[in-house]
Design a binder for these strands. Structure first.
Lengths: 291, 291
DNA sequence: CGATTTATCTGACTAAAGTCAGATATCATG
DNA sequence: CATGATATCTGACTTTAGTCAGATAAATCG
C-alpha cells in the first residue's frame, strides 16, 4: 500500500510554505514593505519596462505607479520615457539603488547558503530541488540563442560530454570526435540554443551550418532534472525554425543507439534514417529531415 | 564547472514561491480572507488550543481574537473555556464548520491532483518532493507511539521488508523470520514508534519486550527521503527512553552486514557486538546495550 | 488631422493585516 | 487571600495591498 500521492503533494506544499516564508523572504529584513522590495528586485534583475514588471508581479497599474514613486522618492530608481515610445516608461537603478539591490542579493545568497549548511546530503537535496524547480518552472523555460563559447553553453556541453562518456560503452572523448567549430554554430552559418529555467541552463542544441543548404543538428542535451517536460522537442523545433530562417533546406544529424530516447524523438518528428554521412567514430545511426 | 549550489537553491525558491501561490492557495476560493481561512484550517487539522493556533500561525493575540470571533459569527466554530484552565480557550468546529473544512480539504486535494496531472514522471517528481519536504520539515518530525497494527506502522513495516528484500543477497521473507507478535511491541511489554513528518510516516522502530529485564530493538527503518537527518538515532534514543521507563536493563538487537550504515549507528551509540542469541536465518551480527 | 487606443498617473476609496495599550478573568504562589 | 502572572479580549489605531474611475499624454490609424 503506497502512500497517497495527493497526501505527498500536500505535505510538500506544507513543508515548503512553512519554510519558504523564512527562506525566500530576503525581501524582508531591510525595512521595506514586500511590494516595494519586489519591484526593486525585479528592476535589479533587469526588468526595466514598467509594463513588464507590472505584468511579472501581477500588479495593478495604480499600485505600480505608487510603488515606483516611492522608490524614486527614496532615490533608489529613476524612470525615463522609453526612447521608442514616450508613453511607456523605463525604470533603472540609481547608484544607491544598485547598492541596495546588492544588499538584497547578499541577503538572499546568505539565506540560501544557511539553508544548505543546515542540511546534510547536499548534492542529493540539490538534485531533488532541481527536479522540482524544473517541473514547477516548466512554463518559464526560455530558449536563448547564445555563442557556444559562453559560460552557460559551455556548462551544457560539458554535461553533454560527461553523459556520453557515461552512456557509451567505451566512453567518449571529444577530441576524437568531429567537434564543430564555434563559428559554424553562430549566425549567419548556424546557431546555438540554451534552455534557461529561472536563470539556470538546463538544455541545449546546436545548429551547425557551413554556409550551404545543408546543416547539422549537434549537441542536443537536456539536464536529467528537466527530462520528461518535452524540452528536447522544443529545442529541436526552435533549431529547425532558425534553420528555415537561414534558408537551410536539409538537416542531418548523427547519433548513437546507446541513446534510444533521442532516436525515438527523431523518428516521431519527421526525421528519416539515412546512410552514414561522416567518419566520426562515435555515431552509428544517421538521420535526415527536409524542411 | 558545476552549477553554483546557491544559485540552485535560489532557483528552487523562485520556482516554488511562484507556483506555490497558485498551489497551496486552496485557502482562497471560498470567499474568505486568508487569515480567517488559515485559522479555520488549523482548527480543522486538530489544533484546538487558541494559544497553540496563535503560535502556529504566528498571530497577534488581538488579531487572533477577532478572527475567532468572525468564525464564531459565521457559525463555523465555537469556543469554550479549557476544562483545566478557564483562562485558556479551546476552539472546535461546529457541524457547519466541519462541512466548510471538508470543502477546503476537497479544494486542496483537487489542486494537488491537478498539480500531479500537469506533470509527467510523477513517481520521480514525488520522490524529489518527498526528499525536499523531509529536509525542510526536519524540525517538525514527531515520533508517535502507536500500535504496530495501525496503518502508518504497517506502511513502514511494509517498506522495511521491501528494503530488506532488495538489499539481502537472497531476498527476505518475513514468514521465515522471527516476526515479533504485535502484543510484544505494545505497552506494557514494549512499544512501537513511528516518525511522522507533516502527517506522513517516514520511519519506525520497535521495542519488543517479553515482560522481563531484557528487550529487543526491532524494525528500525527510515524512509530513503528522510535519511541523513539523524532520524534513526532519534528513533533509537526514544526507544531506549521507553525501555528505561519500562524498567528494562538490557537491550539486544540482530542485524545483517548488508546494512552497514545501521551497524555504524549502533557502534557509535554505545552498543557492543555480542554472540548470536537467536536462530533467525537473516541476521549475522548481534549487538547489546546496557541501560 | 482628428479619433481612437495605449501606457501611465492621480485621487478616492476598501479590505486585510498587524500593532499596542489597557481591561478582564482566571490561575499559581506564598 | 492578596499578589503577580497568564490568556484572552477590546478599542483605537497604522500600514500595506489592492481597486476603480477618470485624467493625461503619447502613439496609431484611417
Amino acid at each position: 500500500m503506497p502512500l497517497d500521492p495527493i497526501a505527498r503533494v500536500r505535505r510538500f506544499n506544507r513543508a515548503v510554505t512553512t519554510e519558504v516564508g523564512a527562506l525566500d523572504m530576503s525581501f524582508l529584513g531591510r525595512g521595506r514593505p514586500l511590494g516595494t522590495a519586489r519591484v526593486l528586485n525585479a528592476i535589479g534583475h533587469g526588468q526595466s519596462d514598467v509594463a513588464a514588471i507590472r505584468d511579472y508581479l501581477g500588479l495593478d497599474s495604480g499600485l505600480m505607479s505608487r510603488l515606483l514613486r516611492g522608490l524614486e522618492d527614496e532615490g533608489l530608481i529613476e524612470t525615463v520615457p522609453h526612447p521608442e515610445d514616450a508613453r511607456r516608461r523605463v525604470a533603472r537603478l540609481t547608484k544607491a539603488g544598485r547598492s541596495e539591490f546588492r544588499a538584497y542579493e547578499a541577503l538572499s545568497n546568505a539565506q540560501a547558503k544557511d539553508f544548505l549548511a543546515r542540511h546534510s546530503r547536499q548534492e542529493e537535496l540539490l538534485r531533488a530541488m532541481d527536479l522540482v524547480a524544473s517541473a514547477l518552472g516548466r512554463g518559464r523555460i526560455v530558449l536563448e540563442e547564445m555563442d557556444p563559447r559562453d559560460d552557460d553553453a559551455k556548462y551544457c556541453l560539458g554535461e553533454y560530454y560527461a553523459e556520453l562518456a557515461r552512456r557509451f560503452e567505451n566512453g567518449f572523448d571529444v577530441s576524437l570526435s568531429r567537434d564543430p567549430e564555434a563559428v559554424d554554430m553562430v549566425r549567419p552559418r548556424g546557431a546555438f540554443l540554451v534552455a534557461m529555467s529561472d536563470g539556470l541552463p538546463i538544455g541545449c542544441v546546436g545548429l551547425k551550418g557551413g554556409g550551404g543548404e545543408v546543416a547539422e543538428i549537434k549537441r542536443l542535451w537536456v539536464a536529467p532534472s528537466a527530462r520528461g517536460l518535452g524540452l528536447a522537442r522544443r529545442l529541436m523545433e526552435a533549431a529547425e525554425d532558425i534553420a528555415r530562417e537561414l534558408s537551410i533546406k536539409v538537416l542531418r544529424l548523427d547519433t548513437n543507439s546507446a541513446l534510444p530516447e533521442a532516436q525515438q524523438l527523431y523518428r516521431n518528428s519527421g526525421w528519416t534514417e539515412i546512410a552514414r554521412f561522416n567518419d566520426d567514430p562515435y555515431p552509428d545511426t544517421f538521420f535526415e529531415k527536409h524542411l
